[in-house]
Design a binder for these strands. Structure first.
Length: 260
DNA sequence: ATGGTTGCTTAGCAA
C-alpha cells in the first residue's frame, strides 16, 4: 500500500482553510502534520476536515503555535505535549498512531535572534525533544516525525547561505541539536531523493523572498529506518507557495510503500 | 533607499 505523509506549516488554519481543503483534494495525502494552527481546539475546523475525509487530532492554543495530525484512517493513542514535567504552555507537539505508524507533528521554536531568550528556549526545547524521542518512541518501529523544525541542516539547504549565516535557522547550535535527533535513529526523507541544492520549503513573506528565490529547507519529514526503507519518493509541493494568500511554507511530502 | 509581509488582535508581537 502506498501512503503519502505530508507536513505543512499553514500559518493559521483559519486563514488557510480554503487552500488547505483544495490542496487535500488535489494532493491526496493520507497523513498530514500541520503546524501554526493559531486556534484553540474549540475553533479547530474538525468538521470541514471530516467532510473532506480526514480524521484529526489537534493540540491548539490561542494566537500562536498549535499542531495537528490528519489522517484518512482512524487515529488512536493521541498525546499532546512532551509530557516531561516542564511547565510549557506552548502547543508544539502532538503524537498519534495511524496506518500502523507512530506520527508526530512538531513546531520547533523559531528562536528569533541568536543570543536572545527565545534562542535559549529553542535550544532547550530541542534538547527536551531529543529526550522525548527516547521516552515516547521506539526506533525499530515505524515512526514519522513531520514538522517545521526551523533549522536548515546544511549549506545546500539555503539558497543564499551567506545572507542567512549565523541566523537562528542556520546557526550551529540548532544544527547540532537537529543532528542529535537524526542520530537517535531518523532519516531525512528528502535527502534520500534529492542530492543538490534545496528543495526549499519556506520563503519569508518579507523582502520578496519567493520571487527572488530566497528559500530555505526548514520543514522535514523524518522517518525511522524501518519506515524510511520503504520511502519511494519525497518532494516539496512548491506550487502551494504561489497564488492568493499562500502560507509562507510549502508542504513537504514523503511517499512510503508499506507492507500490510 | 539597505526596506519591502502576513496573521492575530487591535498597536504590537511573532515569524
Amino acid at each position: 500500500m502506498a501512503i503519502k505523509v505530508a507536513t505543512w506549516n499553514v500559518n493559521s488554519v483559519k486563514a488557510r482553510l480554503e487552500r488547505l481543503l483544495v490542496w487535500l483534494d488535489k494532493a491526496e495525502p493520507d497523513v498530514v502534520c500541520l503546524q501554526e494552527l493559531k486556534v484553540t481546539d474549540e475553533a479547530f475546523p474538525a468538521e470541514a476536515l471530516a467532510d473532506a475525509g480526514y480524521n484529526a487530532a489537534a493540540h491548539g492554543q490561542r494566537t500562536y503555535n498549535g499542531v495537528a495530525i490528519l489522517s484518512r484512517k482512524e487515529i488512536s493513542d493521541i498525546s499532546s505535549g512532551m509530557g516531561d514535567g516542564v511547565d510549557d504552555p506552548q502547543a508544539r507537539v502532538i503524537k498519534a498512531s495511524t496506518y500502523g505508524i507512530d506520527v508526530v507533528s512538531v513546531y520547533v521554536p523559531n528562536g528569533r535572534e541568536v543570543g536572545s531568550d527565545k534562542w535559549e528556549y529553542k535550544l532547550d526545547w530541542l534538547s527536551r525533544f531529543r529526550k522525548y524521542l527516547d521516552e515516547n518512541l521506539t526506533k525499530n518501529k515505524r515512526v514519522a516525525i513531520g514538522g517545521d523544525f526551523n533549522v536548515a541542516p546544511e549549506e545546500r539547504d539555503v539558497a543564499n547561505p551567506d545572507k542567512w549565516r549565523e541566523s537562528v535557522l542556520c546557526h550551529e547550535g540548532g544544527r547540532e541539536r537537529l543532528q542529535s535527533l537524526i542520530d537517535w535513529g531518523l532519516v531525512d526523507t528528502i535527502r534520500m531523493h534529492h542530492d543538490g541544492e534545496g528543495p526549499f520549503s519556506w520563503w519569508d513573506y518579507r523582502r520578496l523572498a519567493f520571487p527572488k528565490g530566497d528559500g530555505l529547507r526548514i520543514d522535514h519529514v523524518l522517518a525511522t529506518k524501518k519506515l524510511a526503507d520503504t520511502c519511494v519518493d519525497a518532494y516539496v509541493d512548491r506550487d502551494e507557495r504561489k497564488g492568493k494568500k499562500p502560507s509562507d511554507h510549502a508542504p513537504v511530502v514523503a511517499e512510503f510503500e508499506i507492507q500490510e
